[in-house]
Design a protein around this nucleic acid. Sequence first.
DNA 1: CTGAAAGCGCTTACAG
DNA 2: CTGAAAGCGCTTACAG
Lengths: 341, 341
Amino acid sequence: MKPTVHDIARCAGVSLATVDRVLNARPGVRGATRERVEQAIVTLGYVRDLAAANLAKGRTYRFAFILPANDNSFMIGLRREVEAAIARSSVERTQIEIIEVPAFDGGALVLALENVLARKPDGVALVAIDAPQVRAVAERLADAGVAVVTLVSDLGASGRHHYAGIDNIAAGRTAANLMGRFLSKVDGRVGLLAGSMLVRDHRERLEGFLSVLSEDFPQVAILPVIEARDDPALAETSIREALRRHVGLNGIYSLGAGNRGLIRALREVDAARRPVVIAHELTASTRKALADGVIDAVLNQDAGHEVRSAIRVLKAKADGLPVLAAQERIRIDIFLKDNLP
Amino acid sequence: MKPTVHDIARCAGVSLATVDRVLNARPGVRGATRERVEQAIVTLGYVRDLAAANLAKGRTYRFAFILPANDNSFMIGLRREVEAAIARSSVERTQIEIIEVPAFDGGALVLALENVLARKPDGVALVAIDAPQVRAVAERLADAGVAVVTLVSDLGASGRHHYAGIDNIAAGRTAANLMGRFLSKVDGRVGLLAGSMLVRDHRERLEGFLSVLSEDFPQVAILPVIEARDDPALAETSIREALRRHVGLNGIYSLGAGNRGLIRALREVDAARRPVVIAHELTASTRKALADGVIDAVLNQDAGHEVRSAIRVLKAKADGLPVLAAQERIRIDIFLKDNLP
DNA sequence: CTGAAAGCGCTTACAG
DNA sequence: CTGAAAGCGCTTACAG
């Protein structure tokens, strides 16, 4: 049988309370006693039953999720997933608060994080903006014992305990590989549509895309990046303009969100003359565009996985437990019209 | 506060034992009493704490995993994942037994299932062979209250409670889409390497592949399927032979396992004259081949996810709980050399 | 610094 | 058919 606290107590000749103190590294145990208990723990091969511990403690994990108030389908879906997690709160012993901040606004994010710090939850998940001030508050949170997980867009590795999102450099590289192979003309010209270079995910996708294109497909020309702040209306006019100006434009990589505008502009073009288009995030509109042949491939990150993973990791960090890396890796989904879920 | 059994007992004016009987649909409660308790459960909005229940019961879930004794990396990896799950047994309250059966042998599988039935575990996961006799035993297991989950390769939807694996028709369609787009010559000739048409996953991949090729890329010719029983040596000689005979062979879709042999044969061909190759399952050898440009794309199913998902589903079924479909969907990973994990 | 006792939410013999 | 009491593995006041 699995050894329990009773076995440890008996083996070490102490009471349950003392075993518990040692187990949870609480003060008030003489060195000698502590050592006897630790010895017993090792010899018996004790491993604590977290569920029983949480039951006894009546533990609930208090987490804060800081999400950008973005109007694009991906962020709306992300928020919905957090809400779904909130709906499971009682079963999962969590207590999750959603905090909305203006998008692409480092100052607002810093402020939100400081507010969170004042309340000292068990953990915080944030869609990061990769700025020094943000990193600084994140580090203060970590120092205060709050688990910090970045979601979708990362900070530098310092300043957070875990990143729940895809490898965006690899995503950009993958997009370039597909773009290069799908482009039939060797003298392709590719346009790039981004949200903002303030967020690391967009920067990294761009970086990966450019490096593979120049390595493996040097004949493809790249037009200047259009930053449309993930705003559908802005994206629409910019792309319409680009399509008009650059007659030889035969590829578009949309590395941000706000694809509704892009798709509207694309639908105005004759099917035969449409560029190869690769976009991010499977939403109602990109799905439809994929099925219709307006978009050729969609790279996707599963918001549900990201949120569930973030919560698992926050819990593990709060309990000082290790995370199962293979399980928490967020994969880059590649959708063509033939493998839509 | 969340209502507990005590609240129900008080509200219905009965003892805890009676509440428990009603909660677990055990006999020996008068109709009127039962109704009062059920009423209390509803009005209080009670939802049971599974962890506490399992603690009190000392419950452990007994599962059997039936795996084919195949010598390919994928099956070896799958087995390793089940072993990893066994290592987590004490934490997860499981007791998992691995049963090996000869590969592609319906009779052996039926026998194994009958042995399992005699022991009546809580659930069984099997890599299915899609034969009527197998389906029949699976149904007897289900009737006996054993949860049945197919792993990697499915039975018809009847006969099992859940399938933990990818949509193989979609996988075949995806392979065809990539193949069609990657083939530069319009007069492509594509060879097909399969394991066995006895297993549903291979049949479905073939079906999906052929349908997209004929719909969207009718100019591509398809050679007869080679069945190599997922045996690397057999695959090697068959492919070497095919490459020799069909000089215009410029595409190969390997829809089964046993890719080590395929890769050996491919490496003998001049890089410039190598066909476009799409294979399944990311293993040490396909990973290397992808990096080296010998294989162009790998479709993958994550064995770790499949095993963990199968266990979650078996537990849920054993407890009569619903499963979170979105979480349990096994996705088709598409790996190019640029997004290797 | 240490321990006896009660309790977390549920289940299980056992007695009636 | 129903209930009082003990127990699952752990933690928490409280007393000493």
